[in-house]
Design a binder for these strands. Structure first.
Lengths: 226, 226
DNA sequence: CATAGTTTTTATTGTTTGTTCACGAAACAT
DNA sequence: ATGTTTCGTGAACAAACAATAAAAACTATG
């Protein structure tokens, strides 16, 4: 139910369709953009867990899109390309691409590279893919959260927020940073969203939501998870 | 200037030589192992910044070596292979390989993939800036202050003031300077603010606020932190 | 196209923090 | 010593910030 989202930026409809089918059958939620510009807008308003970027786009070169994304987006970007040109590959990797795959690609390999990339940004240690904090248990691979061995029903925003907190245990995260990571770059003033979702999360994960032990408010700054 | 260490695990001397020359000309320091067993020992005794692992080794399969390494080693491991077998690639990536490159590879691309892999791990553990003064512990990255391992609850002005003091340990800071740094230009005559907040801070961080040991008053001038 | 689930707005109440003032204590100068 | 300046501290108030419920808008899905 809590699927990780992937954004495809590619102008060829057949490729998009092929990718979407493969990704959805691997339990990802897929968003699509048919041009670089559209891709930038979707990514900014709804940051995905990973971006698949075609390098040969009609409006802007994929290299430019990559650079613009990397100004604020720090999750994996995998480049797809028909070109097997070494300088192209080197340039993309040096501009922050996570991986570079040449078409035609093998779907199984692509899926494995996607898993690998996501695993690394979430710094999931192959051995311990489960974060445990007292009564809470967060499985980052199957995306399931348990409290006292009871499965919690979380919406995807709630889940994303909780894992952002859990992956930064002990650190104070500012409102702005959280909003940027969960809602996108244009939402950094919408602190009210955050209050609403923190309240919802606390109702689900805290023994006593009036006296929260997991999500601590740092007034005027942000929140801290412990 | 670079000098990150890279460990090559490969049984073919020609490949090792080729890799070593390329890597050294890119300013890496190179260690080599000609078998999986030897590779494990060298990696354990002298953990490198990145490992290049040939999958076709004589003693143990590279896949086994990869698994054993991943039990404790969490920096990048790039797989080199003559095999362009999809299941091999998927297996390696799912077992924690950072990347999988098939021979014959292009040196420029390999170097770019190495840079990319190292860049990503360095961003992750760039953390940890902790100032320690006796019983006080100020973590500037997490924005958390501890006294005798107890987390102190500080407002943001209190925190800013404390970090300003801590960053200038031993120096006398004038009222004017502190006011300018914390409240901004225009507040440089509001010494009363400072008195109030210094008193509040001392209540929280000093054993005995009447006889302060951390924030020392320099009458007529300002304060000094030690 | 209806409905359940989710996100965004709006409104209200409660809490925390910053600012100001008052007054006694300490430091300083003569 | 005595008066003068500088400090420390508690309390009161206003402003900023936070929690929460509930309604409205939106989305996904059959």
């Amino acid at each position: 139910m809590n699927k990780a989202e992937i954004l495809i930026i590619d102008d060829e409809p057949q490729i998009r369709k092929l990718l979407r089918i493969s990704l959805e059958s691997n339990d990802y939620k897929v968003n699509q953009a048919s041009s670089g510009k559209e891709g930038l807008i979707i990514a900014a308003n709804h940051p995905p867990e990973l971006i698949l970027l075609d390098i040969g786009l009609p409006d802007k070169s994929g290299h430019e899109i990559l650079k613009e994304l990397r100004e604020w987006y720090n999750k994996p970007i995998i480049i797809l390309s028909v070109q097997d040109n070494e300088n192209d590959i080197i340039g993309a990797l040096d501009n922050g691409a996570t991986d570079y795959i040449t078409k035609p690609f093998r779907t199984g390999e692509l899926m494995a590279r996607i898993r690998s990339a996501i695993r690394r940004t979430q710094n999931i240690d192959l051995n311990e893919t489960i974060i445990i904090c007292n009564d809470l248990q967060i499985d980052l691979v199957s995306r399931v959260v348990k409290k006292d061995d009871e499965i919690l029903k979380l919406t995807s925003t709630e889940y994303n927020l909780l894992t952002l907190f859990a992956r930064n245990e002990g650190k104070v995260l500012t409102h702005q940073y959280i909003l940027k990571e969960i809602w996108g770059v244009g939402y950094q003033t919408e602190t009210q969203y955050l209050r609403v979702f923190v309240a919802q999360l606390r109702k689900k994960i805290e023994e006593n939501p009036n006296n929260p032990l997991h999500i601590i408010t740092e007034s005027g700054v942000g929140y801290r998870f412990s």
